[in-house]
């Protein structure tokens, strides 16, 4: 997947996304998450990934909001009069929670959809992520499609041998079929890992020293400064919220005394 974000070093959108998520949770509610959600969707649209990020966000936000409103309508507080009519406070609470969640999903969704994981891992490795950690992320992403295909193969093979699967077999029968279906898949993957370990050792995976990237990712000075500004702004925003919180505690204590 290519997006306009490919022009940037992946660490810059990552820093922006993390900062947006933290601001959405730390800022005044519900306006900050609403603003973060709008900003994240605008960035996604400008990067050509607006549709995918919007779908990803709606898939989490809409059911969460619906369930929270349903819960409020079905079980009103003792003071409330009518059942099955959502209260104003309950709906606002549901909206605040859903907006916060939506802001986080949209901000991280820009990274998930717009930045290739391999590129992101390479950029992190260039900034000091250990080689073994980078290998784990990239190898896991590459192993997923293969394992899924193998799971389908095992399912087909065991069906051919007469293992009953699906409707009409009862929960007990299906539970009994589970080891026959999952067992070969798991054992196969464990045995294969021994071969992969030998290959890693043979290729001097353990070698100490700085590695040279085959395709280094550019990190212009402007982006390095942009990230510094993002972290500073985030620290200032969190410090401001802490100060506000401490201030409200002091006022509450003074008014009590």
């Amino acid at each position: 997947m290519t997006s306009a974000l490919d022009r940037w070093n992946p660490l810059t959108p990552l820093a922006a996304a993390i900062a947006l998520v933290l601001v959405a949770f730390a800022g005044p509610q519900p306006w900050t998450p609403a603003a973060v959600l709008a900003l994240s969707l605008a960035i996604a649209l400008a990067s050509g990934i607006g549709g995918k990020v919007t779908v990803l966000t709606l898939l989490v936000v809409v059911p969460t909001f619906a369930l929270l409103v349903l819960l409020d309508a079905a079980f009103p507080e003792p003071a409330a009069e009518t059942r099955w009519i959502p209260s104003r406070a309950g709906t606002l609470d549901a909206l605040a929670i859903s907006l916060r969640l939506g802001a986080a999903i949209a901000a991280l969704g820009v990274i998930v959809v717009g930045v290739a994981p391999r590129r992101l891992t390479r950029a992190l490795a260039a900034r000091g992520l250990p080689a073994w950690a980078a290998y784990l992320v990239i190898a896991s992403l590459e192993a997923v499609p293969d394992a899924r295909r193998r799971a389908e193969d095992v399912l087909d093979a065991q069906r051919c041998r007469g293992v009953a699967v699906g409707k009409g077999t009862g929960v007990r029968g299906r539970l009994r079929a589970l080891p026959a279906l999952a067992g070969p898949l798991i054992v196969g993957l464990v045995i294969e890992s021994e071969e992969r370990a030998l290959a890693l050792d043979a290729r001097a995976f353990d070698a100490r020293g700085k590695r040279t990237a085959l395709a280094p990712i550019a990190d212009p000075i402007g982006e390095i400064w942009a990230r510094r500004v993002i972290w500073l702004a985030l620290a200032a925003a969190i410090a401001w919220r802490f100060w506000e919180f401490a201030h409200s505690l002091v006022i509450a204590q003074v008014s009590r005394s």
Partner: peptide, 17 residues
């Protein structure tokens, strides 16, 4: 190290089963 990526893939692939 060689087993972990396969285990991660397994966590996702067992969903099919």
């Amino acid at each position: 190290l060689a087993l972990i990526p396969r285990a991660v893939a397994l966590n996702l692939a067992l969903g099919a089963v």
